[in-house]
Write a protein that binds this DNA or RNA. Structure first.
Lengths: 141, 141
DNA sequence: CGATTGTTTGGAATAGTTCCAATTCCAAGT
DNA sequence: ACTTGGAATTGGAACTATTCCAAACAATCG
């Protein structure tokens, strides 16, 4: 429950990759943790600016890229719409609501993940798999 | 084995959507059927030009879009790279080879598809699901 | 402190795609 | 056959998301 756990783990992860912890990276990451609605880079930019008014969009892109490298954040692409960012590290699929444009995380049980990987013929060695649904979500959450 | 089956089914599908069969649409479709290597719009453009030298890139985009609407072709997106087009209508996943950039079709047994759809909680109604692997493929095919 | 390396910044550049207005093509009705 | 209206095509401009770049800034190390 320490208030700076997230930022500590960020610092740690960055250090592991030989990178520095900076205010920009901290705030970008905290913005993602605070509101997990799969924001685009522009949306992150807008949110971060309230805390760091002089940050540039290029830096936001840099920070997001860095966080993806460190595996603290996942980049989510849906068709050709802007990349969205997601700090959920558990294995999960995405559900894209066609009406609202909202993206939901769908937890993936290991058993399902395993079965999906079974479909690969010999000679295919997957390092990751992405599952994306598109459809309509009844507004529960 | 009739040589014009494909073009007939194209004409049919287009008519079903109230659209016309045109040389441009025919050739774009036939190019996709001829070489199923998931070409980009630019690649389709290049191939079609050998047959229809005056076609424009905009028309290629239009035709591809039309074929996708008619459900004769699937648009395949991988991260933010250019959209690729695929005339394989059976349910299948895609495997993206990180070294070569090549895309492979992976057949999806109905059972797996069913299990994947099981992960959706109540209230989520999926009209389609996309499964994309990324990794390394031993050059078998 | 001074040098080196890493980071941020604003703006220019790029890539892929879509938009648009003008033309061309067809099909149906006379 | 001739017209006319809608559909399709075309070339080029516009757009969007992102990356690149060179300059400024910051932090770390010797």
């Amino acid at each position: 429950m320490s208030p700076h756990l997230a930022s500590d783990s960020l610092t740690q992860r960055l250090a592991d990759s030989g990178l520095r912890s900076t205010p920009q990276r901290e705030v970008v990451y905290s913005v993602l943790l605070r509101k997990r609605d799969h924001p685009t880079a522009e949306e992150v930019f807008a949110r971060v600016k309230t805390e760091l008014p002089t940050i540039s969009l290029a830096t936001v892109y840099n920070c997001l890229e860095t966080l993806v490298q460190c595996e603290l954040v996942r980049a989510v692409n849906f068709e050709r719409s802007p990349t969205r960012y997601c700090p959920n590290l558990r294995p999960h699929a995405h559900f894209h609501d066609e009406q609202t444009g909202r993206t939901y995380d769908i937890d993936l049980p290991p058993a399902v993940l395993a079965e999906v990987n079974q479909v690969l013929p010999a000679g295919f060695d997957a390092s990751s798999v992405e599952i994306t649904f598109r459809g309509q979500a009844r507004a529960t959450s």
